[in-house]
Amino acid sequence: MRRRHHFHIDHAGHSVSATVQTGRTVVVEVLVDGKETGHATTGADRPVTVHTELPTDPPTEATVRVAPGPGIPRCVLEVPGAEPQVMSPRLY
């Protein structure tokens, strides 16, 4: 059965959101300031990494690491020079 999970965090004045659709194939979409900036798929419960950029001057590389399971997925935002930050789950 497919299910959608939403995660969010604010970092350096930018909104970073992730949607994780679980099931046989896991689909991950990452949005920065409301624009899709990354997309990835993986099988079952295998972890996946989505590379993206924050629109700073100059742009800052960022990574969203997703552990889709077992159980409830978990997302972590990683930005160079900062501690990894767990993204908060959001209900929609």
Rank of each mutant, 00 (worst) to 15 (best):
D10L: 10
A12Y: 04
S15Q: 13
V16I: 15
V16E: 07
V16N: 01
S17D: 15
S17I: 01
S17R: 15
A18R: 03
A18F: 02
T19W: 00
T19N: 02
T19R: 12
V20H: 07
Q21Y: 00
Q21H: 04
Q21L: 11
R24Q: 11
T25H: 09
V26C: 13
E29T: 14
E29V: 12
V30Y: 00
L31Q: 14
V32A: 05
G34M: 04
E36T: 11
T37E: 14
T37H: 07
T37P: 03
A40N: 02
A40C: 02
A44I: 08
D45S: 10
D45F: 14
R46D: 15
P47S: 12
P47H: 06
V48S: 01
T49G: 09
V50W: 03
T52L: 15
E53Q: 12
L54N: 09
L54T: 06
P55Y: 06
P55K: 09
P55D: 04
T56Q: 13
D57P: 03
P58M: 09
P59L: 03
P59N: 07
T60Y: 05
E61L: 09
E61R: 14
E61I: 06
E61Y: 07
A62I: 13
A62R: 08
T63C: 06
T63D: 09
V64N: 05
R65S: 13
R65L: 11
V66A: 04
V66C: 06
A67Q: 14
P68N: 02
P68M: 05
P68D: 10
G69W: 01
G69D: 05
P70Q: 04
P70T: 06
P70V: 06
G71S: 05
G71Y: 01
P73K: 08
P73A: 07
R74G: 10
C75I: 03
C75D: 05
L77V: 07
E78K: 08
P80V: 04
P80H: 03
A82C: 08
E83D: 14
P84T: 04
P84G: 08
P84R: 02
Q85P: 01
M87S: 01
M87R: 02
S88H: 11
S88D: 14
S88Q: 14
S88P: 00
P89S: 10
P89L: 10
R90E: 14
R90P: 00
L91S: 13
L91I: 11
Y92F: 11
